[in-house]
């Protein structure tokens, strides 16, 4: 099939909610004559994802990331616009779409709570009508990548978060879907489990050529996995492009972290700096100011530690949101 793996055209999702009036009388009035209000969760979101590409879908809480993914996965019906996944409209061809996608929502499990995980896998094998030989091969591969065998006889309620999400990842890929949606798959995990999941995602993109949309608040994860990011805020796309370009366009700032032997900023150092633990952090956007600061620091004997770096991704994202908000204001 030609064309992008995923395509969203002017996607819109509006939720209608009841407005509760304050106070007891207000509550009674709401009961008799409820007032409805529309909440626009996603507004005119358009983008496409090529086959074998990983797109990081980023944004603050309530930005519309999960709603967008749910429309692409066929869970929600868009209020307007069109979604196409592998050429199909997800909510109209839900069962066909289900065979082509795998999805993990990090905070929720799709495994049967009271059954050992391996029994959930066999149920999914039957639901997706996976041939026994293909099922065995895939389970072996997934076990090799995620080290599941040591705990897959446990029920999800007896697993740690990391173990449960690894089982969920396996469950989502058992039917070998070419497209994967991962909604905060590493949320709440420890560093070791996170690293294992990141490697798993990287393997799926680079070795298995799967198309992935990943949402996360972990910027280290984005830096490690994504070349392209889509930033959304208040339901709208605020940036769609390469991660390197994003850093170049919005991340012109610098930071210098210095630890002085005295614990205080000595006289003659430009700028007060912000005290962070034992160190002081100097920041700015003017490269001349940075050079001046560095010159004054490098000549001193009371500097015990010095570290310099550019804006991290979180700073860059904050800069994007600030700049876009200023434009739309």
């Amino acid at each position: 099939m030609d064309g992008p793996a995923i395509e969203a055209r002017r996607l819109r999702k509006v939720f209608t909610t009841s407005v509760r009036r304050p106070g007891f009388v207000g509550a009674l009035r709401s009961l008799v004559a409820p007032e409805r209000a529309d909440t626009v969760a996603v507004e005119e979101v358009s983008f496409s994802v090529a086959r074998g590409e990983l797109l990081a879908l980023l944004g603050p809480n309530g930005a519309g990331k999960s709603t967008t993914i749910k429309m692409l996965a066929g869970v929600l019906v868009p209020s307007d616009g069109e979604a196409r996944v592998a050429g199909q409209v997800p909510h109209l061809d839900r069962k066909v779409n289900a065979r082509r996608i795998g999805a993990v929502f990090g905070q929720r499990t799709q495994l049967w709570w009271d059954l050992p995980a391996v029994e959930s896998f066999t149920m999914l094998r039957d639901i997706f009508k996976i041939e026994q030989e293909a099922y065995r091969t895939r389970l072996e591969e997934l076990d090799g990548l995620l080290e599941l065998a040591s705990f897959w006889q446990r029920r999800p309620r007896q697993m740690s978060l990391g173990q449960r999400v690894r089982c969920d990842l396996a469950a989502a890929l058992l039917h070998d879907p070419p497209i994967i949606f991962l909604d905060e798959p590493t949320i709440g995990m420890d560093a070791v489990a996170k690293e294992q999941v990141r490697e798993f995602i990287r393997y799926q993109v680079e070795q298995r050529s799967r198309t992935v949309i990943l949402t996360t608040h972990d910027m280290a994860e984005v830096a490690r996995l994504a070349r392209r990011v889509l930033l959304v805020n208040e339901g709208r796309v605020v940036y769609d492009g390469g991660l390197a370009e994003l850093q170049k366009e919005y991340g012109s700032g610098w930071k210098v972290r210095v630890t002085f032997a005295t614990g205080e900023v000595p006289p003659g150092i430009p700028g007060p700096g912000e005290k962070v633990g034992d160190a002081h952090v100097f920041a700015g956007v003017d490269p001349t100011a940075k050079r001046e600061l560095m010159r004054s620091l490098l000549d001193r004997d009371d500097v015990t530690d010095l570290e310099t770096h550019g804006d991290d991704l979180e700073d860059i994202m904050a800069a994007v949101y600030r700049k876009r908000a200023a434009v739309t204001a």
Binding site: A98, L124, I127, F128
Partner: peptide, 8 residues
């Protein structure tokens, strides 16, 4: 949500 992701 999970049920809607399966072909059943």
């Amino acid at each position: 949500d999970a049920f809607l992701l399966r072909p059943l």
